[in-house]
Design a protein around this nucleic acid. Structure first.
Lengths: 168, 168
DNA sequence: CACTTTAGTCAGTCTCTCTGACTAATTTGA
DNA sequence: TCAAATTAGTCAGAGAGACTGACTAAAGTG
């Protein structure tokens, strides 16, 4: 966990002692919370845990185990959350034509509608950030974070699982 | 929640469709997990939830309500976690001399020892990041995140506008 | 001194997450 | 070829953590 070493009341914004961990976490939480709030307000109730799995679903469909790895939860937990997403109509499970043991979690129309709302809010927030930081700094932030991902994210991206077929 | 819009198989590392939210979250989680792992391995067992409250404790002591606000949990949850930190010897509760209703959660010697370990691991990880990104990009990342904090952290900025301060 | 606010606790519930054990399909290799 | 090992996913049970609501006690307010 990120560590704070300065004493006394809240340090000013330019405090060099604030940890990178907290600095990464603050905008993340801000973005996440605003998007969830907007999606829920638009009539698509979803919890943080559900959303953290949902956002990892590849548009072409993802296997449960893949989702579990990406979201860093057990497959049981991922299954529990996907069950809820299915019950709420955001996703469907289809058999994987290439492997009868597996099924692909795919995004349903209602899920796509929720993503639409989330995307608009996300664009708006990123626009606010860009206006605050300036276009150059915003571009640099993204490219630096992409490079940071190379050494902090063991998971390289969703595999292509093949053409989905309806199952339940 | 952050949204991903690109379809198809494994996107390349420079995939422009990966959201800033995820890009912020990945290194954060990496840092947090490695620090926790190291602290636990050093003989200071602590959970993620406990650590998220613990790291918000001001060296001069913090009230439960302040901690709850900072960690964005209810005061009941904060109290539950502080009870555990007390039981494990990381913190103590002392009466607040200025208000008999309140008590200050203060860091005990064992808590300071755990912070010591966390600080060393944090420095090491930030060093790895700096070597990977280069010193210029690493400096720029920190300064950009500090500026981003101005508009994403309700507790950042001038302490004049009612920013919460310990022991008010 | 009543009234309101603030700090914190108690009780109960629900969500999330885990471990362990299991079924079924696929892959491996002797 | 087919038994063994691996992989995808489910079922069952338990624990941690987070919430709401109701409460006590101390402080501030007019």
């Amino acid at each position: 966990m990120a560590v704070r070493r300065t004493a006394g009341p809240r340090p000013p914004a330019e405090d060099p002692g604030i940890s990178l961990g907290v600095l990464l976490f603050l905008p993340y939480r801000h973005l996440e919370q605003r998007i969830i709030d907007a999606v829920v307000a638009a009539g698509y109730p979803i919890t943080l845990s559900q959303a953290r799995v949902f956002q990892r679903i590849d548009p072409a469909g993802s296997r449960l185990t893949t989702l579990a790895d990406a979201a860093q939860v057990t497959k049981q937990t991922a299954g529990f959350l996907v069950d809820q997403l299915v019950a709420q109509g955001y996703v469907t499970r289809v058999v994987d034509p290439s492997d009868a043991r597996a099924r692909l979690v795919t995004i349903a129309p209602r899920g796509r509608a929720a993503i639409e709302v989330a995307g608009r809010v996300q664009d708006q927030i990123e626009g606010e950030w860009r206006r605050h930081l300036g276009a150059d700094a915003a571009d640099e932030l993204r490219s630096t974070l992409l490079r940071l991902r190379e050494i902090t994210d063991p998971w390289a991206g969703p595999p292509a699982d093949g053409a989905p077929v309806e199952s339940d």
